[in-house]
Nucleic acid binder design. Sequence first.
DNA 1: CCGGATCCGTTTCGATACTG
DNA 2: CAGTATCGAAACGGATCCGG
Lengths: 141, 141
Amino acid sequence: MKKEFRSLCPIASTLDILGDKWSLVLIRDMLVREKKTFKAFSASEEGIATGILASRLKLLESFGLITKRKLPDNKKENIYLLTEKGIDLAPVIIEVTLWGDKYMRKYNPELKAYEKLKTDKASIISTLQENYRQMVAKIIV
Amino acid sequence: MKKEFRSLCPIASTLDILGDKWSLVLIRDMLVREKKTFKAFSASEEGIATGILASRLKLLESFGLITKRKLPDNKKENIYLLTEKGIDLAPVIIEVTLWGDKYMRKYNPELKAYEKLKTDKASIISTLQENYRQMVAKIIV
DNA sequence: CCGGATCCGTTTCGATACTG
DNA sequence: CAGTATCGAAACGGATCCGG
């Protein structure tokens, strides 16, 4: 197993998308916290500047991880939604979260939920993804 | 489950370490490809500049993800090894790899190994980590 | 040679102000 | 409210240089 595996993991091209401070935060905001608007992202606790936010949303859209649309009944507000490609990043987000919980625990106030997350990883990921899909379905009719 | 989960995932602080183009590439090089020297990292297919490499290694060391040491029998060569904290990033690397395989497949020449990886994720991660620990044990005696 | 520091032009970031 | 404009600060990346 080991040898063949060494030539794998060509993650560099993937990190062109994920390898920055904001992309994963935005995707987590969408998937876990169900944020959808420029305003909501902008108000994120981590404090992203509007210029960076705009460029990051554009990048994510260009890579097909999110879509941008206006609702028919609301002309002024843009809605950003994850595509399946973006929703599929849930496992990455969960693993990063778990690692952060283990080694940067000072930033984490809620331990119980993490225990559950660790033991029930797969089902929680599926639930998270399914919930998001249903929310999207309700929005775009 | 959903509501309590929303306040979680404070990944921003974690992304101060992981959220850049090179950190995860270096950790993958160490863990999966067993690279250990400045020279080896420098020769990585992705082409990192020496200045960036030096600063990145220093950063990873300062966060306790890697250690730097000289072997007693070789005074000129520095050896960089992952700590447990770094080895524990294996799940993240695997998930990023799998996502990249699914959505950036043009960069991936070996599909069979990925199928195995997908179905056998947990055991492959353990094996990978255990192999690395044994290699480290052999080196530092 | 190897590890890594330094210099320098270019790119990107981040905060704030501003516009439709 | 959704972004763009601007500008100083920081980071990048390539090349080169230096000590052991």
